[in-house]
Design a protein around this nucleic acid. Structure first.
Lengths: 213, 213
DNA sequence: GTCTATATTCTGATAGAC
DNA sequence: GTCTATCAGAATATAGAC
């Protein structure tokens, strides 16, 4: 791991950025685990190994820290979101999307959990985000499915439920990890486990929607 | 709604039970929304319309109140859990189970959310429950699927992923309600919406697993 | 059994030394 | 820029009147 000393000449603001990132990382884990109200600045500070007061040096208050964490998460989220955008064959598009979603659950589980916690709480801090691009994105994706149905490339199923099913199934492996670990009697979810999950989900969704592959 | 006055003769402990239930109901909503740490006794008391101190008269402390709420939730949960127990045709068994699960999401959304919040937090208060009957239940259900596969009644898919997919898809309509409302541009999920969801999920799962129906 | 008042601990936020 | 010390308010929990 590189430190500020090994990176060559002094660059103003580098330490500041590093501390900020450390705090954001610790905050993400804490908020994902305990929610906005349940998380404490004390625990975030301990986890980031900075004095509690320093958090207020980088972020004006708890809500603004949470907002920054959420913003980071949503940016990551959007990247995966937009994978479902091609006009290729449905089998390819959905396979790639399911792989991308499962991969996100594997590589960014806390981001997934943070988002889930927000949703379960009624999404009080997400209204702006959800009203914005999100509705448009969903409508556009819906019409892609509808054109597939019109072309006889998939069965006549309400596309909304297909999308919800893909979201639900893929996010489950991040959000409900404890349940999966106990059910499958394993200690942790390996990369192979995620690959197997994606494979099963793809098989069921594609065949279940009558998509040829 | 019947009150203690309309129920006839005095019965010792009835007022006590009613207050206890009121508090439990308010606590379930509060814990489901804000998690264990995020929920406050103050807000639970206000919501249940009792003085804050009275909660401590019925429950020794916050953790024990949470335990009681969780116990109620898990009892409800188990009822639906056991619907997947028949040795009939897979199409019937899975259809009934999916209907039961979707119905639970519709009639007990807060119970679903409470359970989800616990899971996302790492299930710190569920270890006893999950270690117990749960593992056995899951193993038994897995072997039912395996016998179906052996009899050629369904495709060769890892049963664990099928079960996770059913859980994820059905619970999604309770846990991620805000997202669904915004995506579908509706104000609330009607009973018909749940019926449609169940129908789509059944269609995809059954066909996707190669189960004849 | 029920409520008011209060003890005690904790949380978010700030002041000010270095 | 960083940390120690500390404040005001809120949280859990209890004591004790009625």
């Amino acid at each position: 791991m590189t430190t500020s000393l090994s990176r060559g000449p002094y660059k103003p603001g580098r330490i500041r950025e590093q501390s900020r990132d450390l705090i954001l990382q610790a905050a993400e884990a804490e908020f994902a685990c305990h929610g906005f109200r349940g998380a404490t600045m004390q625990r975030i500070a301990e986890s980031a190994q900075v004095p509690k007061a320093n958090i207020h040096y980088y972020f004006s208050n708890k809500l603004s820290l949470y907002g920054s964490v959420l913003e980071n998460t949503l940016n990551l989220w959007d990247t995966v979101f937009n994978e479902l955008s091609s006009h290729d064959e449905p089998a390819d598009v959905l396979s790639r999307y399911i792989d991308a979603k499962i991969n996100f659950s594997r590589t960014h589980p806390t981001a997934s959990r943070l988002f889930a916690k927000e949703m379960i709480s009624g999404a009080p801090h997400l209204s702006a985000y959800l009203q914005q691009d999100y509705r448009l994105w969903f409508k556009q994706r819906m019409s892609v499915f509808e054109s597939w149905i019109a072309q006889g490339k998939m069965d006549n199923i309400d596309p909304a439920h297909v999308i919800f099913m893909i979201w639900a199934s893929t996010q489950y492996y991040a959000d409900f990890e404890p349940q999966i670990l106990i059910a499958t009697q394993t200690e942790q979810l390996t990369e192979q486990a995620f690959i197997n999950a994606a494979s099963s989900i793809k098989q069921i969704i594609l065949k279940g929607c009558g998509i040829k592959y």
